[in-house]
Every structure is written in C-alpha cells, then in structure tokens.
Amino acid sequence: MAESAGKKKVVRVDFAFRRELAEKVEGNLASFCYQCGACVGDCPAMTYTDDFNPRQIMLKVLYGLGEELIGDESYLWECTNCYNCAERCPQEVKPAEVIISMKNMMADRGQYPPGVEKVINAFLTEGRTVAMNPAIDKNRARFGLPPLSPVPMDEILILIEASTGEGKES
C-alpha cells in the first residue's frame, strides 16, 4: 500500500480492484470513460486543489491503481459531490458516483475521515444525523412545533443488517 504505483514504469491493470469496485452500486461506470476530459473544467475540487482531477481519477480506476485512490489519506474525500462531472460527461460515467463507490470500498476497510464517521455513527445510533438533546424539543416548542418522535431503529437495523453483520466499522 505504501509505495506508489505511479512510480512503476509499466502499468499493470489490477483487475482485483476493478472487480471489487464493480460489485458496488454503479461502481462499473468508469468502464465507459474515453478520457475526453469534459468532466474537468467545472469540477470545483479540481479548481481549488492541486491534486484532484476527475478524468485522471477515472483513468486510475481503469488501470485499477487502487493504492493511489483509496487509503487512509485518500484525496477522494475532497470531492464536493456537486455532480458537475456527471452533468458534463458524454458517456454517462458519473465520476461522482464512481468516487462514492470507492468510498464504499474504503468504508469496508474502516477508512473514514473522522468527520464522516461521526455523522454515520449518529445515524446508526438514532436514525438521524443530528444527535437528539432536550434543547432541540425546547427550541421546537418556541415555534409551536411538537417534540420529535424517535426513529424506529429496529426497522433500520434490520434493513442494513447484511452489511453491519460483516464486521464493518461503525
């Protein structure tokens, strides 16, 4: 994982990475990418950082360069999820979705930025991304709104059992 595949002279396509990615929902879309670069111009992550480029990310996916894409310090979390890339792509690749599929691969390995993990844990505990506290209902009452009812977590947990059961970090 540590040494970068970018330094190798010959690029070998890592099919294991591509197969794993293809298992994810809409994970296989990069296969249609013909590297035109239409997704680049309006990408804010490209404009405002030095390293992020959706065309290049799709190329790395095609080569299966997993170790340059996912990992503890992955730059894929810089994506703002704006979907400009999907809007521009003539091949309907949706780079934003391919990137989220790779985030799913990182999640399988327990690799989340702390801020992301915090929100996920709030959801897994109470079914909302904001943790409940008494001030919330007090503030609602000020606007004549009733207290919030708890989310039926038994149902939610049954729905996601298949993935939590596989030892996912949560």
Binding site: K24, V25, E26, N81, I100, S101, K103, N104, M106, A107, Y112, V116, V119, I120, F123, G127, R128, T129, S149, V151, P152, E155, I156, L159, I160, A162, S163, K168
Partner: peptide, 19 residues
C-alpha cells in the same frame, strides 16, 4: 409516522450505497 434520516447522500451513502 416513523421517518428516518433520508439517509444523507454524502456520509451514509459513502458507507454503503445498498444500505
């Protein structure tokens, strides 16, 4: 009755799209 978080399209979606 009984709605949950949508769930959010950034964080929870990043965890597992099928969930």
């Amino acid at each position: 009755e009984g709605t949950s978080c949508c769930p959010d399209p950034i964080y929870f979606k990043s965890r597992d799209k099928l969930d």
